[in-house]
């Protein structure tokens, strides 16, 4: 009777199609990225093997490191904003009236495409007619910032819609974890005379630390590979003020047709993301002990 559930043809039929898709469209491309990185290649025509030239160039490429720095800044910024999200979700999860409605409102930007968000925020940041500068003028501020057009401000301006996009996502996940904290523990602490802050800081936050760690990894890896919104909003400009790793790769490959060098950048992105995940896992485990 067990034979039915170990029917080999059925297993192959059920697993193989998905497995082949994942192998051919995810794993083989990943291996090829590293391989193409060894080539001088314009995407069409012959590849020329040039050994580690592209990778050597990458290590000395100021623009690559500048883009990486921008991605790392975004990662730091995203991790820091988790603190704000945690405060909001602690309030929401304290069984406050209307908490569910607030939660539903917060998530709405997450449902939009990065392209729509980018286009909307281009208008919001518009120096002449945008929402923000109109508001600033109403308060009598004459010298309104140029936002995306100012090389010193563009990167931080781009971070704002990214936070706007993801805030609700992190909040609902933290909230889901917080409402699962056993009520008895909170009651016990309250009877012992703990106030709301102490309960939040000493009981709730430590109890959801597992979820918080996952969110830190999500925030860092998500930031390192961040692309769509920045590419649409600024194209990495002005100059390279908002260039990030993925946008640099994309422009090298599909803009300048340096497929070999683009692949080397793509491989660098892979190593960085995987490395960051591994490092954070190690670091957070150490902190726990």
């Amino acid at each position: 009777m067990k034979n039915v559930m170990s029917n080999k043809t059925a297993i192959i039929l059920y697993v193989l199609p998905s497995l082949l898709l994942v192998l051919f469209l995810i794993y083989i491309p990943i291996a090829l990225t590293g391989y193409y990185g060894l080539m001088d290649w314009s995407g069409v025509g012959q590849m020329k093997f040039i050994g580690l030239e592209n990778y050597k160039k990458l290590i000395h490429d100021k623009l690559f490191w500048e883009s990486t720095w921008h991605s790392v800044l975004l990662a730091l910024f995203s991790v820091l904003s988790l603190i704000g999200y945690l405060i909001v979700s602690l309030i929401l999860a304290s069984k406050i009236k209307g908490g569910n409605l607030f939660r539903k409102i917060y998530i709405i930007p997450m449902l939009m495409s990065s392209v729509a968000i980018a286009q909307l925020w281009i208008k919001i940041f518009d120096p002449m007619n945008g929402l923000i500068n109109s508001l600033l003028s109403m308060f009598g501020i004459k010298e309104t910032p140029l936002w995306l057009a100012d090389p010193d401000m563009a990167l931080y301006s781009v971070f704002i819609p990214i936070v706007w996009q993801y805030a609700g996502f992190y909040i609902i996940i933290m909230y889901a974890a917080l409402i699962n904290v056993p009520q008895e523990l909170i009651e016990a602490a309250r009877i012992d005379g703990a106030n709301a802050f102490q309960i939040a800081y000493k009981i709730k936050v430590p109890l959801i630390s597992g979820v918080l760690k996952v969110l830190v990894i999500l925030a860092v890896v998500g930031s390192l590979k961040y692309f769509d919104l920045i590419y649409v909003m600024t194209g990495g400009g002005p100059g390279h003020a908002t260039e990030v790793i993925a946008s640099y790769m994309y422009k090298e490959a599909f803009g300048k047709f340096n497929f070999g060098y683009g692949s080397a950048i793509g491989f660098g992105l892979l190593i960085l993301s995987m490395g960051a995940t591994w490092m954070i896992q190690k670091m957070l485990r150490v902190n726990q002990e």
Binding site: V22, P29, Y36, K225, S263, G266, L269
Partner: peptide, 23 residues
Amino acid sequence: VLALFMIAYMIPLHSTLIPLFNI
């Protein structure tokens, strides 16, 4: 097989883009 699917989830899509285009 399970591990292959789980790890695939962590791979940044952008790193596959150039080879995918070629394939």
